[in-house]
Design a protein around this nucleic acid. Structure first.
Lengths: 201, 201
DNA sequence: TTTTTGACTGTAGAAATAAAAAAGTCAGAA
DNA sequence: TTCTGACTTTTTTATTTCTACAGTCAAAAA
């Protein structure tokens, strides 16, 4: 059974490689299988369908994301430092996994099954919880005023995601945002974050 | 010539009525003509093409918008009051002209000509200038700290538009957002605006 | 028994084509 | 100068065809 998990991990990693370059919908199960030098039915032995594989991919990516967030959080003292670091992490993941359209705050069309949408929303909720906890700590330490942390965390993340969403919508209709646009998004997110935090004091 | 302008106004108003209900692309020049009990070539006598008519519509709507903004601004004392009033005005226009997809911060696909996109961007710039002036006044009166007002105005408006953008993207895929979604957007925009202003002090 | 495969099927989406509708024009009337 | 019926051209939409992909299965390999 531990061998099975290993194989599953290998398949997920192979899938991610394809997904990153060509997106979920433009990647076929055959291509993933060929990359790993196995047959398609082998894939279906480990994952009942493509959605399950995508689910595995999403879980892996967000698991990495939250791991990094937890780690980074420990090394930061002020709320501002902490949230600035988080912006950088999100930016890194946004760039790396852009083709999967996991950002944007809402489930993408490429996540076509209910299970996938549910998983995505669960990750979003977990992210909000995480940020709420960070905010709560800042409240407890008297860094910011007492607030409804879950609500403010949601608002904060939405304001951040909104910046991204608008820049992508607005920008060139290429399938990938330009380096300059990416930089602009990052700068705006940092600016907005600073003002936001100051507004909580 | 003043008669001509009168006719143009009438046509624009007729077009707006259709656009509000069915959107720009689902409204034909024939329908607009029939509503006004004139022939299609009459329309083309006053507007060389559909884009010109749409341009007239956009100019009319934004002219109304800025007029209302100017008027409301005069009656408000604090920056917070002022921006709160602006949110209400934008919300009103957003609801009324939702089918035209004029919000969202970036030119919609229904604005298909370069001239239209340019006009839209000009209106966006004017809106930013307007907000920058309001911010500058608050700076001059010592209400908020000294800032790069054009830049902060852009960031402020983008944070506000981002909320809308995300809610629409996220929400039910109906062609019109629900009453509840509209309310949520409004509340979030007010919350974010308050925090934002406080962060500028 | 667990894992893997070649060869297969039904379906969903792309590409091509046909049909409909709408934008835009023009000669001429009011 | 303003307006119109009748027309042409372009764009959009609906329909069909075709292809490529997701998913299956009986059987072989480990």
């Amino acid at each position: 059974m531990v061998e099975t998990d290993k194989k599953r991990e290998l398949i997920i990693e192979g899938a991610i490689k394809r997904f990153i370059h060509y997106g979920i919908n433009k990647t076929t199960m055959n291509e993933i299988a060929d990359d790993l030098s196995v047959s398609k039915p082998s894939l279906y032995y480990y994952f009942p369908d493509k959605s399950s594989l995508i689910l595995g991919v999403i879980e892996k990516i967000f698991s990495d994301y939250f791991e990094l967030m937890e780690k980074d959080q420990a090394s930061k003292n002020t709320l501002e430092e902490c949230l600035a670091a988080f912006i950088e992490i999100r930016h890194k993941f946004f760039q790396k996994y852009y083709m999967l359209h996991l950002s944007g705050g809402s489930p993408d069309a490429s996540l076509n099954s209910d299970a996938l949408r549910a998983a995505f929303l669960a990750m979003k909720a977990k992210n909000e919880d995480f940020h709420a906890k960070v905010l709560q700590r800042a409240v407890d330490q008297g860094e910011i005023a007492a607030i409804d942390t879950p609500k403010i965390a949601e608002l904060y993340l939405e304001s951040q995601a909104g910046i991204t969403s608008l820049c992508i919508l607005h920008g060139n209709k290429e399938l990938f945002p330009s380096k300059k646009e990416m930089k602009t998004i990052l700068e705006k997110q940092h600016s907005l974050s600073k003002i936001f935090i100051k507004g909580l004091k």
